[in-house]
Structures are given as structure tokens and as C-alpha cells.
Design a protein around this nucleic acid. Structure first.
Lengths: 372, 372
DNA sequence: TTGTATGCGTTATCAT
DNA sequence: ATGATAACGCATACAA
């Protein structure tokens, strides 16, 4: 048994037949202590130790003390996986979003994690990257008994909810979030998009704007529809005609600059240019700013802008930009609280919640028209 | 046993002693199918079914077929928790960062998740919120055998690494990330902060600036020290005197506006004002922009600015702002690949990697001095 | 080719 | 007050 050291195909060194190394590894891979170990060391049975640790009344004070101090000394931690197997619950929740590196979602995950941490749950994250196939496989993966519940925001490709229906049928606890699932039997937590959009549009009208355009996300998304409705209702309420030429869509939510450029060209090169624009996603908002910088269109002198955005910098971007900010962190907290409440109270009658949270309209004084 | 429905303290309705409801719930909580169920249904033993599913060569084609089709029909999924218990590995990795809702970290998590997904691992996230106590308890929590390895970026309060040393001693696989642990026996993935800072400072010098200030993060953080060294070295290489009065620190990395305000006041109200500033974190960068907007200091006419930032909007912010961007997504991928490689190749000799990844300096032409 | 038995770490149900 | 045993779902060494 000569020690042999050679490079494996990853270029790292591998060691075989080498007592020195092997021993050092055996030492290093500290086998975490279990109840059995404690029992053996103290000459007790497994069950006694288990009960002592769980502070059962059946155990004598002396034994309890012995077990506890030994456990503490050896840094005993119950194995959560064994517990999960026994209790048929993992104390972890899955979060599926389209994109983690998106301010809105990362703020929401922040909120979810905060609640989960308070209640002793793990948070397992997955992203669909706006891909329906990846969304479905991630859901399957999470659902195969490794999470107790799922918080999800569907991808922009998701028009068919049968997969989610399937999960519901198998008894998975779920909360739909932001981009809502068009399916009755699921809890929903979302921004009051209608009201937010209504308020933003009204803000324009009150400041004297009447040629108000709206650039929206993919038309079949719940958020798009609600925001468009809010815009239209505000116009209607103020007896301003709704004109289709002033409504533009970006199929990918403005992710691609070209989309926004096309929409803006259509609007700004027409004879009756709008003097105000409502931008219905953060990518659309910032790409409009980019467009205006490039084409030297002055905001708000030539065109005023109110945009949905959760990017922390937007308020610095253009002094006259008013922002509709979704309460992402709070939405995350509410979704997590709702989900965990459901997980832990299985006897609760399932009346599915539909929670609408108000967005915050950060009005910048200068977004008002000078002559208004 | 009268059915009774009453509101619990959460305001939701609870049902007790009600057969109707109980039955409907029993139906709803679809008990996922196990190997045992399949065995019973097909009159086989557990092990035969197990082997058939794992496509063992020992099983006859016919039996295999029977098992597989039954499994598929009933949507059998192996229970990952039982597997974890058996194999003593959970196929999940923990990620501990100070703050999820931070562009750099959320981009990094994006990278980590991408690799994990490819390799069949779960990603469990936790945040320290820059709190050393929360950092330690999160580490304990993750480490108590529920993850196979941990990727961590320490909090700005972490000066003592004994907790991490303890984890190492217990055999936990770890990769230290971005904010590096000052501890030998751990893999490290970080930005080449020295070079980035050196290049940014050189950019100033080449454009004719000589009064270059540096506003840095908490002084004992590895990233702060390296960035400061790069700044100093660049000055030295160009025979510019290093002046302490031009070096300012923000203990909380500019998180609090006041910190940056104080630093900027000190710099800009002195007799020998700097004409260029290197901002060593994204919060510092944007708060300097905010400060300049408020005090009407023109960038770059009065003071030029180069800042570290991973915020997607920074390029829109000030047309003359040059950005040092860390390759967050790639760093996440590398960290995850390194970690998973380590988890899966336990015999590899532990030569701890120290990976330095180059930052990207986005130079904006207009950040050059007009007269240079 | 298939079946039986054991163990992973824990708790619950019996015993004693 | 304590101990023995079974069970959670799976994989595998050993038997047949």
C-alpha cells in the first residue's frame, strides 16, 4: 500500500492508499454527535436521552442534567433531516420567482426570509428565468416532498395553470405572489395594481396633463391587465378619451431595450405626441429614461414620466420622475406569514385569501407641469 | 361530537370535531406514493421495486417495465429526505450573505442558483443583516447537518473567525466569498480588488487628476484594505503623494447617508479640495451622487467620480460616472462550482483555492477632464 | 432474478 | 423513571 498522489481530470490532486492523509480526513470529517452516541456514552437508552433532551417530565432531574450537560459539551444538534422524515415535514418553504437578480424579487425574498427565520423555516430559492419549462420542473422538484409549501410568482410565459392545479390537488400549500395565478383555489398576495395605476394617472391629470400614454408589460399578465384598467378608469373618471394609439405593449416587460424604443418611437413620432407617459414596469421605466437621454427628450418639459419601479436608485435618476413603488418586502412578509400559517394550521377552513397591498406613489414636486 | 366552527386568534376559522371537513381534508392531503406502495400493489418486495426504479441490471425487463409504468402512472417521486438520511447528504447548499436585497449579492445568488440547479442541488439562503449574532446562529442552523456546504460572505461586524474555524473543524465544506475570511483553511472567491482600485485610480491619473480622494468601507474588511492598497499603489507608481486627509472611511459602508455626508463635508470643505474621488462601495457611490445633487456640486466639472457599483442603473445616473463593476454572477457560479466539486470529491487534497476575479471598469469618456 | 434484513436519527408506543 | 421496539422511505449487503 504505497501512498500515491496523482492529478485527476479536474486538475486537482487525489490521494489513495495513504494512511496519513486518510487519518487526517477521518479526523477532519467530524461525525456529528447523535442521540445514540450520548446514550452509549452515558449508559442510557436512546429513548431516555431523547426524552431528557425534549425536557420530558418523566425523566429524573439528575439524568436530565447528565444528558443535557453532555449534549451541550459535545454540541449536540438534532438532525433536522431525521426529524423531517419522522414528522413528514421539512420546515422549509420554496420560493419560485422569475429572476432573483431583480430588485422587486430580491426585496420580496428579503421579506420572506425574515419571516421564515423568525418561524424556524428554511427558504429554498429557485428561478424560472421566465421559462415555463424551467418553472414546471422547479415546481416538481420543490414539491417532491422537500418543502412544506411554495410561494410563487409565475413566469411571463405562463398562460396555462394546470401544473399548479396539479400541485394543489396533491395537497401542496401555495401562495401566489405578484404575478397572480388565474386559479381560484390558491392564496394571492399582490400589489393593488389597479389603484396604483389609477393614482399615477390621476397625478398626471391633476397636474394638467391630458395626452397620457401607457406602456405596459405582456398583455396577458395579471399585473398588466390590472394596471391598464387603472389607467383607463382614471381617464374615464376625468372624462378623457381613451385612445388605443396611446397604449403600447412590451412583450418582455421592457427587458429588451428595442421593445421600449419601438414603443417610444411610435408614440413620440406621431403627430399627436403624448405629453405624459405611465410606464408599467421598472425595466420599461428605466429604458424610457435611457431613450430620452439618447434622443435628448427633456423630462418633464417635453414629456412627463411616472413609472413603476423598485430599483433603489430611481429617485436619483431624474429629479422629476415620480415612482410607483411596490411594497416588495412587506408583500414577501405577508406571503410567508400566510403560507406558514396555512402549513401549521391544517384544520383551518380554506377560504383563499386575496390580499391587495397598496403601492407607494413617490411624487416628485417637479413632475408637475410648470403651467398647471 | 358536534361540529364546531370558531374563529381562532388569527381571525381565521378553525374546525373541530367535524367529519365532513376532516374527510375532505383526508382526501385533499394526497399522501405521496412510496416504494412500499408500489411493492404492495404489484406484489413485489421493496428492494425489487427500488432496484427496478434505479434501473439495476439485476431486474428482469418485464418486472422493470411493470414497476416503471406503475411508478410513472402514479407519479412516483423518491423522497429526497429519506435519501438524505440514508446517504448523509442533503444535496443542498447554504448561502449566507449580509443582505439579499443588494444587487451584488442577488446577482451572485443568481449565479449560485444556476450552478446548483445544473448539478441537482437546492440553494438555501440566509442573511446576516450585518449582525454577527445572526451570522453565527444562521451558520449553526445551516451547519446542523441540513446542508452539504456553505458559501458565505461575512458581515461587516465580523472580526473574529472562531465560529467559522469551528465549522471547519467539524468538517463542513465552505467557500468564503467577496468579503473574505482571514483564515487559511477555506476556499476564497473574490474580486481582484487591488487591481480594480489600482486601475480606477490610474484612470484618474491618466486623465490629469492628481488630487484624488478615496472613500472606503469599514477599515478592517478585507475588501476595504485591498481597495485602499490598490489606490495607494497607483498613486505611488505615479509618484503622487498619499495624503491621509484624502482617505475617508464609512463604518457601515455608506449604508447611512450621514456617513457619506460627513466624509464628503470633510473633503469638500477643506482648503485643498480633491478634484476626483474613488468610491469604494455601491452605497458610497450613490450617496456621493446624492450629496452632489443636493449641494449642487457638478460631476465631473468640480469633482470627478469613479465608483464601485453593481446597481444596474448606475450608468444612467450621471453620464460622466465611471463604474467598477464586480463580476457578481460569475463569482457566484465559480463559488458554487468550487463548493460542489469539494462536496463531491472528498478525497481531494485540500489545497485551498484563492480565486481572484477581475472587475470590469466601465469607463465613460466624459469622466476625463476636458483640459487633460 | 427476487426477497429479507439492516441502518440512517429521531420520536412514539408500548412495555417494565 | 427507564428501556425495547417500531416506524418514517430508501438503499444495499446478504440470502435464496
Amino acid at each position: 500500500m504505497n501512498p500515491s498522489i496523482y492529478a485527476n481530470d479536474t486538475g486537482l490532486f487525489v490521494v489513495k492508499n495513504c494512511n496519513f492523509i486518510t487519518q487526517s480526513f477521518n479526523k477532519m470529517k467530524f461525525e456529528a454527535i447523535t442521540i445514540k452516541d450520548i446514550a452509549k456514552a452515558l449508559g442510557l437508552s436512546n429513548s431516555t436521552v431523547s426524552r431528557a433532551i425534549r425536557d420530558s417530565y418523566q425523566i429524573s432531574a439528575e439524568t436530565k442534567q447528565r444528558v443535557l450537560s453532555y449534549a451541550k459539551e459535545h454540541n449536540y444538534r438534532p438532525n433536522p433531516i431525521a426529524l423531517s422524515l419522522k414528522e413528514k415535514r421539512s420546515r422549509s418553504i420554496g420560493v419560485l420567482v422569475s429572476e432573483i437578480a431583480n430588485s422587486f424579487f430580491s426585496q420580496a425574498i428579503d421579506g420572506i426570509e425574515s419571516v421564515a427565520q423568525e418561524k424556524g423555516y428554511n427558504v429554498i430559492i429557485a428561478q424560472s428565468k421566465e421559462d415555463i419549462l424551467r418553472e414546471n420542473s422547479s415546481l416538481d422538484y420543490l414539491a417532491s416532498r422537500s418543502v412544506d409549501g411554495i410561494i410563487l410568482s409565475v413566469s411571463s410565459e405562463t398562460e396555462d395553470f394546470s401544473h399548479i392545479q396539479g400541485l394543489y390537488d396533491r395537497g401542496m400549500h401555495m401562495v401566489s405572489f405578484d404575478r397572480i395565478v388565474n386559479f381560484d383555489k390558491i392564496h394571492k398576495v399582490k400589489t393593488d395594481n389597479f389603484q396604483a395605476s389609477y393614482d399615477a394617472t390621476t397625478h398626471f391629470i391633476k397636474n394638467g396633463y391630458k395626452e397620457i400614454a401607457c406602456i405596459s408589460n405582456a398583455p396577458f399578465l395579471s399585473i398588466s391587465q390590472e394596471r391598464l384598467e387603472g389607467y383607463k378608469s382614471a381617464l374615464k373618471a376625468h372624462k378623457i378619451k381613451i385612445e388605443d394609439r396611446l397604449i403600447q405593449f412590451c412583450a418582455h416587460g421592457g427587458l429588451i431595450y428595442k421593445e421600449v424604443e419601438t414603443a417610444m418611437n411610435t408614440l413620440m413620432r406621431s403627430k399627436k405626441k403624448p405629453n405624459a407617459i405611465l410606464a408599467c414596469s421598472d425595466k420599461i421605466t428605466t429604458n424610457i429614461v435611457r431613450y430620452c437621454q439618447q434622443t435628448k427628450i427633456a423630462i418633464p418639459q417635453e414629456v412627463a414620466l411616472v413609472g413603476f419601479s423598485n430599483l433603489v436608485l430611481t429617485d436619483l435618476l431624474v429629479p422629476s420622475l415620480s415612482i410607483v413603488m411596490q411594497p416588495a418586502y412587506e408583500m414577501g412578509r405577508v406571503a410567508a406569514e400566510l403560507l406558514i400559517h396555512n402549513i401549521e394550521n391544517k384544520n383551518v377552513v380554506k377560504q383563499f385569501e386575496n390580499i391587495n397591498m397598496p403601492a407607494i406613489l413617490h411624487q416628485r414636486a417637479s413632475s408637475a407641469k410648470k403651467d398647471a
